[in-house]
Simulated assay, not measured.
Amino acid sequence: MSGRFAPYGWSLVLHAVVVALLGVSLHAPAPRPQPAAAQAEAEPIQARAVDEAQVQAEVQRLRDEARRQQQQEEARRQQLRDEAQRAREVRQREEQRAAEVKRRAEEEQRQRAAAEQERKAKEAAEQKRLADLQKAAEEAEKKRIAEEKKARELEARRKQEEEARKKAAAEADLKAKMAEAQRQMEAEAQKRAQERARQNATLVQQYIADIRNKVERNWLRPATARPGMTCTVLVQQLPTGDVVNVRITRGSGDAVFDRSVEIAVHKATPLPPPPVPELWEREIEFIFEAR
């Protein structure tokens, strides 16, 4: 700043000097008439007047110079003001540009922060979704395993029940077959027994008829006997057919007739053997009838 205003300052200094000189010359006392000796000094006074004219001229020149310098200074100041204005405008534009850049940077940072926050939120949501899916998959797997286990248990129980049913059915069928076989065997046995009994009955009847015939052959008819008279005789014998004892269990009403039958049984000893050994009985009971 001191370099810019130095010419203007010097002009002011010169101006001040000139004004001071003028003041001195104007306030100086008017010259008094001088003696001849003093006229000798008039020339210096004239010279001083000439100097004042020069001074005036110099002052005017200095004034013009000062004015010119002032105009130059004013022009330089205006230039400086213009430059300052342009600098302010440039600075304002730079500040606006910087502010815009800062705003954009802040906006981008805000957008990045929002995007980062959104990304983190999405990532957290995705992680939660994956965790939920993993949990759901694990639960589904556990449920599947439990259902498979339950299905296996049910299948095993079904198989056991089926096997038990089959076993029970087989046992029932076996029992039924055994019962049927037993029934058939019993029926066959009963049939055989009936047949044997029928045969035995026939043989027994034949056996008793043989005994009765032999007794009749040894019977001596008493005078009191009439055709058709009967008595029931119980005979006790040995396996050899030998008679041990004879007893009338149901008499004819005629003691002589009954006694004659007892004697005839004793005379018939040994009694005829049965057709088959199985028909032998220790006691034989038959009806004796007079012919």
Rank of each mutant, 00 (worst) to 15 (best):
A6V: 06
Y8T: 15
V13F: 05
V17S: 14
A20F: 10
S25F: 13
H27N: 12
P29E: 10
A30K: 05
A30P: 02
A30V: 03
Q34E: 03
Q34V: 08
Q34L: 12
A37I: 03
A40V: 09
E41F: 04
A42C: 05
E43N: 07
A47Q: 14
A47L: 11
V50N: 15
D51A: 15
A53H: 07
A53V: 12
A57H: 09
V59F: 08
R61G: 11
E65L: 10
E65Q: 13
E65C: 05
A66W: 08
R67D: 13
R68W: 07
Q71V: 14
Q71A: 15
Q72N: 15
E74G: 07
R76G: 02
R77M: 09
R77D: 09
Q79R: 11
R86E: 10
R86W: 06
A87F: 02
R88Q: 12
E89A: 14
V90F: 01
R91L: 07
Q92K: 09
R93H: 05
R97W: 07
A99K: 11
R104T: 03
Q111I: 07
Q111H: 10
Q117P: 00
R119V: 06
K122A: 10
K122R: 13
K122V: 04
Q127C: 02
L130V: 11
A131W: 03
Q134P: 05
K135C: 03
A136W: 05
A137N: 08
K143Y: 03
I145F: 04
I145M: 06
E148K: 08
K149W: 02
K149I: 01
K150P: 00
K150L: 09
A151W: 00
E153I: 06
L154E: 11
E155M: 01
K159E: 12
K159I: 03
E161L: 12
A169C: 00
A169R: 10
A172H: 11
D173A: 15
D173T: 12
K175N: 14
A179Y: 06
Q184M: 02
A187E: 15
A187F: 08
E188K: 14
K191D: 12
E195C: 04
R198S: 07
N200C: 13
A209I: 02
A209E: 14
R212P: 00
K214V: 06
V215K: 02
R217K: 15
R221W: 04
P222E: 07
P222W: 04
T224P: 00
T224Y: 01
A225N: 03
A225M: 02
P227W: 01
G228R: 06
T232R: 09
V235K: 00
Q236S: 13
Q236E: 15
P239C: 04
T240M: 03
V244P: 01
V256C: 00
V256N: 04
S260E: 08
V265F: 06
V265S: 05
A268G: 03
A268V: 01
L271S: 05
P272I: 04
P273K: 12
P273F: 04
P274F: 02
P275D: 13
P275Y: 09
V276K: 15
E281P: 00
E283M: 05
E283C: 04
F288H: 00
F288L: 00
R291K: 12
